[in-house]
Amino acid sequence: MTTHRSRSVSPDDVDFKDGIQEVDPVTGYDTTGHRWNGIRELNTPFPRLVLVILMLTFIYSVIAWVLLPAWPIGKSYTHGILGLTQEGEAISGFVAIEKTRQSWLSRFDKPDFAALAADKLLLAKAMPAAVRLFEDNCAVCHGQKGTGGPGFPNLADAYWLWSGEPKEIAQTITVGINSTDDDARFAQMPAFDSLSRSDRKKLADYVTALPQGKTSAKDPASALFADNCAPCHGDDATGGLENGAPSLADHSVIYGQDRHTVLTTLAHGRQGVMPAWSNRLSSAEINLLALYVAQLASKQNERTK
């Protein structure tokens, strides 16, 4: 590499004092032949190691062309003799994830909740997964800890719209409430704009006082309630009729049981939507979540006891 090469220099290359390449005496490398005010530039050879690595990448790319999908040819492409695709890899990776999970999740295929809840070893594995499922799918509405918020019921207390039995909870998750699923649970609080405003106000005061137990049967609103509301909310307003109408006599609320909110509820009606999950979650995952939700409530119970 240290041979002297000369090349022609055009006359307008004013920077060049001469076009002679020479060997730098200190490093032993060629110079480029350029010279700026007496400063010459070394023509340092490309490091051998990098050249070798570069050659290896070329060799690898030829091997890759043979093994992997590589060259486009019109409407198709060379598939490579391994027949691998990005999509296929993703699917088989996903199948592998599912298989590992299936080793314990398959126990939840059969909703024998009493047996499942008693298996402490199984729960140690399953509950962390349930927490993740809940956070991915349910937490935006029901809250990270299941405590709900205005319009979205608290799942961590002992008060239920439908039922706190894991089997029923699984059904709620599967079909949803007022969802687009054909078998969805249906719950509608009708608008009572047909009642006079003063009647609505009386009812609102009555309903607001219910949780404190400060109502009396002599109250004229009590008759209004019996006529209009009891068919769904129950004679004593404690709900439990399996029609999604909540108890109005306890401290648990969906939208709120202050006078203003109740008036809004009466004027416009309510029909909360809980989406159906049968298309997104497997039945085993739904059963797992049902057990998790049921336990949220009983954990809370232990705390308040």
Binding site: A139, C141, G149, F152, S179, R280
Partner: peptide, 20 residues
């Protein structure tokens, strides 16, 4: 699509902190 209810989306877009 279809994962959440319309009411949730409305609440969330008006102010995401109301629900999350």
């Amino acid at each position: 699509g279809r994962k959440y209810s319309d009411a949730w989306h409305v609440k969330h877009l008006i102010n995401p902190r109301h629900v999350v």
